[in-house]
Design a binder for these strands. Structure first.
Lengths: 192, 192
DNA sequence: GCATGATTAGACCAATCGGTCTAGTCTTCT
DNA sequence: AGAAGACTAGACCGATTGGTCTAATCATGC
């Protein structure tokens, strides 16, 4: 079958969904295969069919998926933004809303899921690559808004560093206000 | 015995040491009791004598210890600082050096160790309290340098948010340069 | 020196871990 | 219809998990 044509998510997608959610909440080592399988409603055999290397494979797929989601939100936020600050502000508010939806707290930042894991080197590399993809996306928007390439990259990095730390604190405090206050923290009071 | 008088670290201290290091590297769920016990050279019975609630107890003790270490570095950094930026810069460089020492990469930030764990609520609260203690310490130095209390708290929070995110990125990239570049990122090029 | 509580020592346990493997089903092509 | 491969299903495995419990050892009071 070239095209599934069925709208309901296939086995593979359901696995990634469940894994993403659970890893985000309990971390890689904190989540058992049994849990993922139960939530996805998928037997063990299927997991090892779609992800021959097992849990690690699944985690990488989940990380890639969540990174692409982040990029999507980023693109959304900058679509109609007149300048950098507006784009960033919209992004922070969108993510704050998401934070509130995700049962308001216990979920790791963008993909903090990737730090434990057995062969740490593979995970680390994967996380770094995913994060760089996100930074690049933000920098692209900066350039489109007239920033010099070097400046855009620098601002994108700085912002996402702040955002990661902000998400961490928001999580600790169970309060998305930290995220909403980020633009003001980083760029001072709004000019307007 | 009121005073141990022996310089070599006691059983309890050795446990906390080993736990701190291992949790930082592999996370809470990623570290087995056996590993900790082996590294500390302590039998299981002793662990449950000193930490009746087991692993969770030990993790909280480790978190408290590391938080107090951070405050110590913070105090050190601000001791001779003429202004906020200097203090912060010294702190970043000290921590960057530490980052390089800790086998250059795989170790969680200040106490990222606290996010998994069984009864998440207890862990989360503990982490939040520890982080607030660190923020308060930084804010105190800000005030001592003449900042208004509200401003000091705000700057302390903002800085530590950035620092957490920076440590995360440094870890992903295995490069402490991110930490050293933080003051410039947050406060612009040095006035000098 | 003897009794007492603190501490160490590690055998032991059920539960769970990630992973393997065989059997069966379902889809699709000829 | 029938063969072939994709996929599902779950029993099963050895290893390891955090935790309990009993016995031995240690220090310190009388």
């Amino acid at each position: 079958m070239l095209l599934p044509m069925t709208d309901e998510p296939g086995t593979r997608a359901r696995l990634i969904n469940a894994a993403t959610r659970l890893f985000r909440q309990r971390g890689y080592d904190g989540t058992g295969l049994a849990e993922i399988l139960a939530e996805a409603g998928v037997p063990k055999g299927s997991l090892y069919h779609h992800f021959p290397e097992g849990k690690a494979d699944l985690a990488c797929a989940a990380a890639d998926w969540i990174a692409s989601e982040i990029v999507r939100v980023l693109d959304d936020s900058f679509r109609a933004a007149p300048d950098w600050r507006h784009g960033v502000t919209t992004y922070c508010h969108k993510m704050a809303k998401l934070f509130d939806i995700l049962n308001s707290a216990d979920s790791c930042p963008v993909f903090g899921l990737l730090f434990d894991g057995p062969d740490q080197e593979r995970f680390r590399g994967h996380a770094a690559a995913a994060f760089d993809r996100i930074i690049a996306a933000a920098a692209r928007h900066g350039e489109a808004l007239g920033l010099a390439p070097v400046t855009a990259l620098d601002m994108a990095e700085t912002f996402l560093i702040g955002f990661e730390g902000g998400w961490m604190l928001a999580r600790m405090r169970r309060d998305s206000a930290v995220l909403r206050s980020l633009p003001k923290r980083l760029y001072g009071p709004p000019a307007s």
